[in-house]
């Protein structure tokens, strides 16, 4: 008898891999949690909740068929030289400058 499992062994998987994403706060973003096997998106949702989020409050849950995900590759694909000109850390010196100008402004004779 050809069971579903034996069909899968013949190279036609009946279960799909789903990647699970959860949003743990109402204003927060979706975050990847884990992956699972299921027969349908609806089943994946049901299974995901208790498999990965049984200790966490969740606001919403996504399951995405793995074949729908395009992947970029490892860290080397993402290498980026430092771009401190776009980081606030490069402009921290302004804090001290503002303090200094503020104090000067408080002292009337320096404004003359």
């Amino acid at each position: 008898m050809a069971t579903e499992a034996s069909q899968a062994r013949a190279g036609e998987p009946v279960l799909g891999a789903y990647e699970v994403f959860a949003q743990t706060s109402e204003r927060g973003a979706m975050e990847w949690q884990a992956s699972l096997l299921a027969g349908s998106p609806a089943m994946a949702l049901m299974l995901a909740r208790e498999n990965f989020l049984r200790r966490r409050e969740i606001f919403d849950l996504w399951v995405v068929p793995r074949e729908a995900i395009a992947r970029a590759g490892g860290a080397d694909e993402w290498f980026r030289l430092p771009k401190t000109y776009r980081e606030v850390s490069d402009y921290q010196y302004l804090v001290g400058k503002w303090r200094q100008y503020h104090q000067q402004a408080m002292t009337p004779d320096t404004m003359a």
């Binding site: 109402e26 204003r27 927060g28 973003a29 776009r86 980081e87 606030v88 402009y91 302004l94």
Partner: peptide
């Protein structure tokens, strides 16, 4: 409207650099 506020959160974070860049 949550989707707008999520976009705004990213935007406001980046604006912190913009203002300091302008101040500088």
């Amino acid at each position: 409207y949550a989707p707008y506020t999520r976009a705004l959160r990213r935007i406001v974070e980046e604006e912190a650099f913009h203002i300091q860049h302008g101040e500088s």
